[in-house]
Design a protein around this nucleic acid. Structure first.
Lengths: 143, 143
DNA sequence: ATGATTTCTTATATATTTGGTAGGAATTAT
DNA sequence: ATAATTCCTACCAAATATATAAGAAATCAT
């Protein structure tokens, strides 16, 4: 039941872009240095986010990445599902229920866990994290 | 964010013991056969549950296992935490917060996820699963 | 044009975790 | 005694997690 580094780094990465939302785009090496994560690893993480349309990339010199929507329009859930796969605790909730579903006793338990997690991640946006960031770190510039 | 087979099999195993709660103890080979799980693997799963005091073992011929408390007194959370380790999505919530905790923006997100999961698993008991079992499978004997 | 910068693509490497299997010792009922 | 059962320890293969790396493609600044 752990979130992997991809999910965790991905959230931090997206928070960086959210904090920078009004300043154009940001290259990965800046974020990598600031967060102490390998730039190459960050590339792998942001790639699927770009493909999914959450971020926009600008290639070449002076390129970088930016959010493709307002922070308030990007939920933590959409980020985590791209990076972690489904957040449900068992596969059967995703792959369509198995043939024993109507007699399966634990099914509703897994379903409740899934709903509880979904409720949190689908109702937390990057804007919420930005507010949290400022509450904890003051209004200072990010970078 | 997946529950492993140990957690899933463990829940099913404990449900079997709960369904059998008024009939004394049950040997693993019976449960293994019924659920199509290797008896040797079930041994590894029930062992920590016994050490944690959730189940009682009876060695030797005609031995077996039984719940050591009423099904209503055993939560799904207590079972899963023994078999899966902590259910929190990140390690820092268990190992004591790290030195960056007071500036960490994602911390409260992880905490909310943890609380949401805890809320479900700590308020679901084996008795609830027994009721669910009977609702789905009728009042027929279990074994 | 050229060089510097940056993303994009693909391949590779290592460590850890998962999901078991297996052998035999210890214990107990019959 | 014997059979049944838990208990303990070791082992193993496959998958997953966590990266590192090389170089191609694109773009900007000069």
């Amino acid at each position: 039941m752990k979130i992997s580094t991809k999910g965790r780094y991905g959230i931090r990465l997206m928070l960086s872009l959210a904090l920078n939302y009004n300043n154009g785009h940001l290259p990965l090496n800046v974020i990598a240095k600031e967060q102490g994560i390998s730039e190459k690893y960050l590339e792998q993480i942001i790639n699927p986010l770009t493909k999914a349309g959450l971020t926009t990339s600008f290639r070449g010199a002076q390129g970088g990445y930016s959010l493709s929507k307002e922070p308030s329009q990007i939920t933590v859930g959409s980020i985590l599902r791209i990076l972690e796969g489904s957040l449900s605790p068992v596969d059967c909730l995703d792959n369509g229920l198995c043939e024993k579903a109507n007699s399966c006793t634990s099914l509703s338990l897994w379903q409740k866990i899934k709903e509880a997690v979904d409720e949190v991640v689908d109702n937390t946006t990057l804007e919420d994290l930005v507010e949290e960031y400022h509450a904890k770190n003051g209004m200072n510039f990010y970078i």
